[in-house]
Design a protein around this nucleic acid. Structure first.
Length: 365
DNA sequence: TAAGCGTGGTA
DNA sequence: TTACCAAGCTT
């Protein structure tokens, strides 16, 4: 090996050794203050850490804050959450999305309450419902200060830039995990885990990273190459298809509106809905909709339609409205319109309510 | 392994 | 407006 390479190699090793301490020093000055974080020197509450981590899965910090506070106020301990009705949990979760998380949250609370303590190893945590590789590592590190390697979207971005990883996600995951594991320190691993995420969230951002402010800039290959913003590389995404449906807003002689509970599994599982036709690729013709009307009455097609974007398709929902004399189907639940907030209505159904009640109106075309 | 699973904010 | 993105998990 030639001499300059050896020197350069040693210099790199030296920089690599300094990465965790330099990040921790940065974190001590710039850490975000978040409702679920303990203050320096205090032990975090595993219940708070777990609850926040579940809520934060694919969900922004700003969105989670209000839900986190509301859950803690209502269910201060994991035993309280375990004792709650699932439907109460779903109602409190409404609007947050990915509703399987709420059902798993409830099951997990019951498992922890039955166990009488919070599991504190990565392997044990991984057994619990709703806890996957990332969340198990995050709880082990943050709540119990174990040297677990977290790999979330932030870490993927930071590490792929640091090493200028060319492999596109999701294929690059194991490569990134191995690189991240080499950095995980024995000293303050919990703070380190939160520090990498703070770095990704505030400095090493997806667009326009603030490299001038980054404590890892001296070691960053992408910064040196001037192409940080192009990482992580990603595989091309599939196009999002459009589906169509018609919702039926039924009002009885008491002024109540008909809801229905969706099946436990699948899309919006266990949540409430305004009954509707199937959501299908083809548009619905008038005659087809007439044949599907769930009850006799004077049906009126409302102007506009609800547009809602799910992860894997876009939904366009027309709304038909009618006064109904008697309940046409046994599985309907009749609810006073001013009590709708007591029910587990996902956001797409709130939009239907808004259109049907002639409110103003997001995502109506 | 890849598809299914929500929503709101931002460029 | 569209497209992307955010502390991923389950099957």
């Amino acid at each position: 090996m030639d001499t300059s390479q050896t020197i350069s190699g040693r210099r790199k090793d030296q920089i690599a050794e300094e990465l965790p301490p330099s990040l921790l020093a940065w974190y001590d000055r710039h850490r975000r203050l978040l409702p679920w974080r303990s203050l320096p020197g205090q032990h975090p509450d595993p219940y708070h850490v777990w609850l926040s981590e579940i809520m934060l899965q694919q969900t922004t910090v700003a969105t989670v804050k209000g839900y986190f506070d509301a859950f803690l106020a209502r269910w201060p301990r994991v035993e309280d959450l375990a004792a709650a009705d699932l439907d109460q949990v779903l109602t409190a979760w409404a609007g947050l999305g990915y509703y399987a998380r709420a059902r798993n949250l409830h099951r997990c609370a019951q498992a922890v309450a039955a166990l009488g303590r919070f599991p504190n190893t990565e392997a044990e945590l991984l057994e619990l419902p709703g806890i996957g590789p990332y969340t198990a590592a995050a709880i082990a590190a943050i709540a119990f200060d174990r040297p677990a390697t977290i790999l979330d979207g932030n870490v993927e971005r930071v590490i792929s830039r640091l090493h200028r990883v060319q492999t596109p996600l999701p294929k690059a995951k194991e490569e990134l995990r191995a690189l991240a594991a080499k950095l995980t320190p024995q000293h303050r691993p919990g703070d380190y885990a939160q520090a990498v995420m703070d770095l990704g969230a505030t400095i090493c951002t997806p667009t326009r990273p603030k490299c001038v402010l980054c404590p890892w800039r001296p070691a960053c290959a992408a910064f040196a190459a001037g192409d940080a913003e192009t990482y992580p590389r990603k595989a091309a995404k599939a196009v999002r298809p459009v589906r169509h449906g018609v919702a039926f807003w039924m009002i009885n002689d008491k002024g109540e509106v008909a809801l229905r509970r969706r099946p436990e599994k699948g899309l919006l599982g266990g949540m409430m809905e305004i009954p509707s036709t199937e959501w299908r690729t083809e548009n619905w013709a008038e005659a087809e909709v007439r044949a599907q009307l769930p009850a006799a009455g004077k049906w009126q097609m409302l102007d506009g339609q609800v547009r809602h974007v799910f992860t894997h398709f876009e939904l366009r929902l027309g709304v038909q409205r009618a006064l109904i004399r008697k309940s046409p189907a046994a599985d309907l639940i009749w609810v006073s319109p001013d009590r709708l907030s007591d029910y587990a209505l996902p956001t797409v159904m709130r939009k239907v309510v808004d259109l049907a009640m002639n409110r103003k109106v997001s995502d109506v075309t």
